[in-house]
Design a protein around this nucleic acid. Structure first.
Lengths: 168, 168
DNA sequence: AGTATTTTTCAATAAGTTTTGAAAATTCAG
DNA sequence: CTGAATTTTCAAAACTTATTGAAAAATACT
């Protein structure tokens, strides 16, 4: 397979993949493009490679920077801004975990705390089912929370070395 | 907080939560409703509770059954079909992992295999960056794949007992 | 078999999200 | 300070996805 074709395939698939993960297709494509590019790219480069508008590039790059997956790069002597992506997939993954934990898991646990104490007869099966379900989700979420915290702080060699022995 | 209010809050939040995970809002809401219901519900019950149309309930229930998160229940003497959700959150989580692995991770790994061997000069930095990135993602994906396989087969007590020691 | 009830389908429509592109704002070199 | 290059904004348009509801199909009771 030719490089150009392989690149296109990867970008398209990474984009489709992203939509399953609550990430907008174009954002995932821009990220894919930057991950496989040896050199930083400008907004114009990205517009050209992906055939999308300037505004679209701008918005999605901003979002990627917000997620700390992409960095602005200044190239001396160049007027334009350039962009580059973190290429170590372990760092990419832990950064995504970090952000999603902050944006989704933490608020959910907060909410479950509040929902935990409904008024009413603990013997009523409707009340019981509700508090049992909420309680179960909460305990599970707290466990996941702890686990992710350690994962985020760990480095890859620990992950591959110690933890992976569990998963022979 | 009153039960009715707490229920509404939980259903709404679980729905919003779902959209971040590539799951349609209504599907997540139906799932939430069934998880906190002590008794199985009929299509009419769900229509009423969530104020959505019959067709909508039907489609989303079908999808949930497809994901094996919801079961049809026959109540003797009743003409209507009823539905109930798995309430053990550990089982729910492993089932979701199982399905998403099958639908997303496995196909992605297959694709990465194909993209691994691009023609061209291995010294070309563009070729090198591409194959390095793809290779890195593939290795990471394979590790995740193994880990998830063990997780799926494990039961909760193993998870909480042995594995959680790692995450003190 | 005939009929009433329930479930499923699906075309039309509504709602939501993403993209465009041109105008406004900003940046920077001379 | 001026003006060309570049970036940012955002309303309108395009596109995508979800929802409705009525008709068709399936089910099961008498």
């Amino acid at each position: 397979m030719k490089l150009t074709e392989a690149k296109q395939q990867f970008i398209a698939s990474w984009g489709a993949f992203g939509t399953h993960w609550g990430i907008n297709r174009t954002m995932a494509q821009v990220h894919a493009l930057l991950m496989i590019s040896a050199e930083p790219l400008s907004q114009d480069d990205i517009m050209e490679e992906l055939s999308i508008s300037r505004g679209n590039v701008n918005m999605n790059i901003r979002e990627l920077i917000d997620w700390r997956l992409v960095d602005r790069v200044i190239i001396p002597g160049e007027r334009k801004e350039y962009f580059t992506a973190e290429k170590d997939i372990w760092k990419v993954a832990t950064q995504i975990v970090r952000e999603r934990k902050k944006r989704e898991l933490d608020p959910m646990l907060k909410l479950l705390d509040q929902l935990q104490d409904v008024e009413g007869d603990k013997k009523d099966k409707n009340v019981k089912q509700f508090t049992d379900t909420i309680g179960g989700i909460k305990r599970f979420g707290q466990q996941a929370d702890k686990m992710l915290d350690v994962l985020i702080k760990a480095d890859e060699s620990w992950f591959v070395g110690s933890l992976m022995k569990f998963f022979k």
